[in-house]
């Protein structure tokens, strides 16, 4: 079991310097990513899900970022690595797929060069071998005419094609871990389905682990094996995809699921979560961060220092307030 663990994140917190002071964007994250598994991290904008991904990739400017805790990847703590050591991991053992496939590609470089670049630093292949491998990769990600695409520039491709190129770059060195940050948000649904199928297929073929970051609950339900729900920089609930969707416990998870327009909700009001997500500067130091958004739940129901509670194998929930949580009868919080 433990040898299947690729990435072990322990008590990870990341803070950003804003106007001279550090503010925590993610706090006390504990997560494991295993081989042959897609872990989805889901939450709304500002919840810290992208910060988590970029922290694992070490993409933050060290001058304005502070990370504590451990990010153990294949036995080594990534946070303790210097740039040279990190660059041996990035692109080779961990690949990343970005949200906006147009801006993620250099507009002035041919597709082929952008793919072979990753091999320049991680392989001993000759130029010719690299070019061949680039064509092979383009074929693998489902591009019909690899020769032609290889010679093109990013602006000449459609959104879906560009995202396939990004995936080709990410998997060029057969990484053990793939981090996909909102990989389909900028795409049409039919293309989204194809891209998700492709990520799934690659994950199965390479026996790799995938971290899928998304705000789309439907994507999570259709793609993930494990799910972590994030709110205001913390994980509030974690479990298998069945546990999260069929037996959601944390008030935030349940509220989110309730605000999705459903087939049978046509004539109802959608559930609205009262209040706003606190900004980094306003993040409460203590107590349940979700408490202000469920004001009808008595404060005695919340823990002073909410911790994760193990409920069944793999299913964890933050705070004890879920035990007393019920939706108000008349939807509250239409006015903010």
């Amino acid at each position: 079991m433990s040898d299947q663990t690729l990435l072990n994140i322990k008590n990870l917190s990341t803070s950003f310097k804003i106007e001279g002071e550090f503010y925590e964007a993610i706090s006390q994250i504990n997560l494991q990513v295993k081989r042959d598994q897609i872990l989805a991290i889901v939450g709304e904008s500002g919840c810290g899900k992208s910060t988590l991904a970029t922290t694992v990739m070490g993409l933050h400017d060290p001058a304005i970022t502070k990370s504590t805790g451990q990010v153990v990847f294949e036995g080594q703590d990534l946070l303790k690595m210097n740039e040279v050591q990190y660059n041996k991991i990035r692109g080779a053992k961990i690949g990343m797929i970005f949200q906006d496939p147009l801006s993620a590609l250099n507009p002035l470089k041919k597709i082929k060069d952008q793919i072979t670049e990753v091999m320049d630093y991680h392989t001993q292949l000759t130029e010719k071998q690299k070019s061949e491998r680039a064509l092979e990769l383009l074929q693998d990600v489902g591009i019909d005419n690899p020769q032609r695409t290889a010679r093109q520039f990013p602006h000449e491709l459609s959104g879906g094609m560009r995202q396939r190129v990004i995936i080709a770059i990410a998997i060029a060195c057969k990484p053990d871990l793939l981090i996909a940050d909102e990989p389909t948000t900028a795409l049409d649904v039919t293309i989204q389905a194809q891209i998700l199928d492709l990520i799934r297929k690659i994950q199965q073929e390479n026996h790799s682990g995938v971290i899928l970051i998304t705000h789309d609950l439907g994507v999570v339900a259709q793609t993930a094996d494990e799910v972590a729900v994030m709110y205001a920089g913390q994980i509030v609930e974690q479990g298998t995809v069945q546990q999260i969707f069929e037996n959601p416990l944390h008030p935030y998870t349940r509220s989110l699921l309730r605000s999705v327009p459903q087939a049978d909700s046509e004539n109802d009001e959608l559930y609205v979560i009262a209040g706003n997500v606190p900004s980094l500067q306003q993040m409460p130091k203590d107590g349940d961060r979700f408490a202000p958004r469920i004001p009808w739940v008595p404060s005695s129901a919340h823990e002073k220092h909410p911790t994760m509670h193990q409920l069944s194998a793999g299913h964890q929930v933050r705070c004890t307030c879920y035990q007393n949580f019920n939706f108000p009868v008349a939807p509250k919080g239409v006015r903010q």
């Binding site: 649904v189 389905a193 439907g218 793609t223 995809v241 069945q242």
Partner: peptide, 17 residues
């Protein structure tokens, strides 16, 4: 188009795919 929408329904995801 309709089939491509990801549904918040875990139980039938194999069939849906």
């Amino acid at each position: 188009l309709l089939e491509a929408i990801p549904q918040v329904d875990v139980r039938h995801r194999q069939e849906r795919q």
